[in-house]
Design a protein around this nucleic acid. Structure first.
Lengths: 256, 256
DNA sequence: CTATGCTATGACCTAAGGTAAGAGTCAAAT
DNA sequence: ATTTGACTCTTACCTTAGGTCATAGCATAG
């Protein structure tokens, strides 16, 4: 006849049955959300079917995202206005969702923005090169100097608009200055001064890894291999490419 | 010439300029996210333009929902992969949004379920009674017998559809049975048997396992006051109302 | 010189547990 | 009977991003 004399469950059993941790049961006990039907002599918690059922209820409401305090109220007070609570909670969730949607939009915009900046920069850096070649170069460079490329991207992406356009302009001016020095010897102090500036700019893109000298030389080689890289005011200039490579090689060999 | 010697800002000023609290600045200082450019003799924080700019950056990333620790990494480590971080964060946000969408769906289902059953309960218990009168009576009863009347929505929610419609049908049959006993005395065992069933049904509709005698009597009074309320086969029947009230009163007085 | 406003530090608080330490307990195997 | 391994207990610190005091020192205008 003792219907209530049914099965008793330990914390472990309950946790396995309901898919919660023991810690959770301890917590729920402490905050009075789910108390064991009784304790043993040694204060072991023992739960009955009733508590198991209540836990299911709790988990249901928890799945709705309700805070434990509110769940306690719901389960404790039979007169709790459940519909009102749910509708209020609904509104809160709705605005949270909206907020996330906004964040997603901003993130997408940011990522696009960043990628756009990357392209711009690379176009600037490898001006005159057809897009597919630029891409090929990027792929090549990424394989050969992965660290530099990564650094370059990170650096550019985090730059503010002002910083970025200043960098662009400065770099362009530097190239122009170098072009006007074409009749100087690549090893001349005038050229080497300007090359030092050029190197600084490149370094800003690439950071300062160990093999930057080699990579910098590689860039010079690229100028020669792809004359399109060295286009000043829309006019390709193979002589300039050779000049640059010589100046860059010299710079690396004597300064680094 | 000292470009860097520009303006210095106190915490209050920065907080006003950037729309954050002073506490936030303290926190950012402590976790190394935004340190003042220097401190005065008396350890007052002073920020420069650079820090103000950095704070803007911080707030931007914060708006994206990035945790402060990650923002620190982004701003501190030039090799931090921003795009990857943003894309990862995007995914996390996406799944959080999805989770909320699920919650909303579940909540809507639950509210609908609850409202449906409440309406049905309303229709069964106060059939024929205009809604405003029913509401008025509920309000009255709620105040008069707060512990008895306010029915637990919990109970309704827990009921399965089958259980609920069984309850509905049983109640309807019970009313019909009582109507056929109209020529018996309200105190007669035949009527009292059926009233006992009626009482149980009301108890279930109100979701109350405990004694609701007083409220139950109040319901009987309502029957009399609002004869429309007691319809038999869709026809209002004042005699039935009086009969019911007598039977209900007697039941409560002798059994509870 | 003082009233008032600004600042600094430290402490405790939030939600829902995670993680761990230290100690006691239970049941089965030795 | 004892040991071992699994289980349980409580206590307490940790997490986020600050909010909200409390206490005390500093600054500035009247």
């Amino acid at each position: 006849m003792d219907v209530k004399q049914s099965r008793k469950y330990t914390v472990k059993e309950i946790s396995a049955l309901a898919g919660v941790t023991v810690r959770t049961l301890h917590l729920y006990d402490r905050i009075g959300l789910l108390k064991p039907s009784y304790r043993t002599e040694k204060r072991y918690r023992l739960y009955g079917e009733k508590e198991l059922l209540r836990l299911q209820q709790i988990l249901f409401y928890k799945e709705l995202g309700l805070p434990l305090a509110e769940i306690t109220d719901i389960l404790e007070d039979p007169d709790f206005d459940l519909v009102k609570a749910l509708e209020g909670h609904r509104k809160a969730l709705e605005s949270r969702k909206e907020r996330i949607t906004e964040m997603l939009a901003t993130i997408d915009k940011t990522i696009l923005n960043l990628k756009g900046k990357m392209n711009m920069t690379h176009e600037e850096l490898y001006a005159g090169l057809p897009k597919e070649k630029a891409t090929a170069w990027q792929k090549f460079a990424r394989e050969k100097w992965p660290l530099q490329m990564k650094h370059s991207e990170q650096t550019l992406l985090k730059m503010s608009k002002e910083q970025f356009s200043k960098l662009q302009e400065g770099f362009k001016a530097n190239i122009v200055a170098l072009a006007t020095l074409l009749h100087y010897a690549p090893e001349s102090p005038e050229v080497q001064n300007e090359i030092a500036v050029h190197y600084q700019y490149i370094q800003q893109f690439w950071g300062r890894p160990e093999n930057i000298g080699e990579a910098y030389k590689g860039l010079g080689q690229l100028y020669v291999d792809e004359p399109l890289y060295t286009t000043v005011n829309g006019v390709a200039n193979p002589d300039f490419a050779v000049f640059m490579k010589a100046a860059m090689d010299y710079y690396v060999d004597t300064n680094l």
